[in-house]
Every structure is written in C-alpha cells, then in structure tokens.
Amino acid sequence: MASVRERCGKALGDFVLDFLKSPVETFQDFLVLSVRAVRNIFRSPHYVDDIFQQMDVIGVGSLPIVMLIGLFSGVVMTMQMARALQQYGAQGQVGQIVSIALVRELGPVLTAVLVAGRNASGIASELGSMKVTEQIDAMRALGTDPIQKLVTPRLIATAFVLPLLTIIADFIGLIGGAVIAYTLLNISLSQYFTSAWMTLQYNDLVQGLLKPFVFAIVIALVGCFYGMRTTGGTQGVGRATTKAVVVSSVWIFFLTSMITRFFLYYA
C-alpha cells in the first residue's frame, strides 16, 4: 500500500507532466517545422517569385509605418533625453544617446514588433484560411510541399527585409532627432550627427543588425507555425492570428534581452 505522501507525490508528478505535455509538444512541432523550413532553403524547387512577392508584401508594405514610427521614436527620444541631460549641462550629447538607443535597441525592437503585428498576423491568417479550406491538403495532394511553397519563401523574405527596414527606421529616427535638436534645442546639425556617429562602435552595428535578423526568423516561423496548425474554421483563424502576434512579440522581447546581455558581457 502506497502511503498518502507517495500518492500525493505521484498525483503531483502526473499533474505537472500533463501540464507540460502540451507546451513541449507544441515546441517540438515548432522545431520540426523550423528545421524543415531551413533545410528547404537548400533544396529544389525554389519558389523565387513567391520570395519576391513576400518581400514586397512584408518589406515595401511595412515601409510607411516603419518610417513613421522610426521618425517619432527619434523625435520623442531626443526631447526626453535632452530634458534629462539639461540637468547635467550635457544637452549637446543628445545625439549620442539617441543613436545608441535607436541602433542597439529601439530600432530593431520597434520595427520587429510592428512587423510582427502586421505580418505575423497576416501570415497566420493567410495560412490558417488555407488550412481550414483544405488548400494546404490540396497542395500536398497536387505535388507541392507546403513548407517549401509557403513557409520557406516567407522565412527568406522576412530575414532579408527586416534588417533593411530596421536600418531605415534607425536612419529616419536619427533624422527626426536631428530636426528636434536643431529646431528646439539649438544644437547644430554637425554637432548632433558627429556625436551620434562617433559614439557608435562596430559592436553596436553588429548588434543592431543581428537582432532584426533573429527577430525576422521568429516572426516568419511563428506566423507560419500557427497558420499551418489552425483548426476550427474562421474562429480558429482568429485564434491563430492572435497567438502568432502575442507569441512572436514575447519572443522578440525575450531574445532582445538575451542578445543584449550577450553583447554587453561577452562581445
């Protein structure tokens, strides 16, 4: 006869295992999809037209909103930092802070969150609709690997355009900051841009480009993953879309803290 303590321990163990089973299975499925999507980059056929189409949708389509957010983040950063620096008489150094914050952190994260909201949701809803209307099964029945046709082009396109969008957001943000520095703070443009440029190190630029590349992989794969496993009709598509945005956003913030820590302490 097992003691009460042993039975409670067993029940608790079963509960924990049951609780972990679903997330572990989900993560395992996600890894399988990711490996197949990456492996397909090196396999024929290559759907080049689809890659360019996705670059247009994700890159060109996101450009206006990314530029707008980049501009306002630069403007707001400059105003806030100038006020703080004024207390120490270092208002002239605002360009340094704005450029470091934008290039290292705000540019990559804000751009990625925007693209996650716009494109992870778009990818999940598009693929989810295809799944519930059996178009994905039809694709398989008609000789096409849906991962090769749908996931890999989106992965390549996002990984290519997100770093470019981030560079544009950083640049527009710095210009926004320059406008504020020149018009409201009476800092010359040469002083602003010199301090902004001189403070950036190789490490900052690598960090600023590595982050959007990693975020792009997460956004594309999470969007595709939730789209491809959609069930339950139109309601299911809605759930998949929400999950894709929430999960990719959480991953973006988690990964940015990991990458930042790595660069601060190891690089």
Partner: peptide, 8 residues
Amino acid sequence: FQEGALFD
C-alpha cells in the same frame, strides 16, 4: 475536396 479547395 469537400469545398473544392481551389487556391483562391
């Protein structure tokens, strides 16, 4: 397929 499953 049941609803045709045409690529829309």
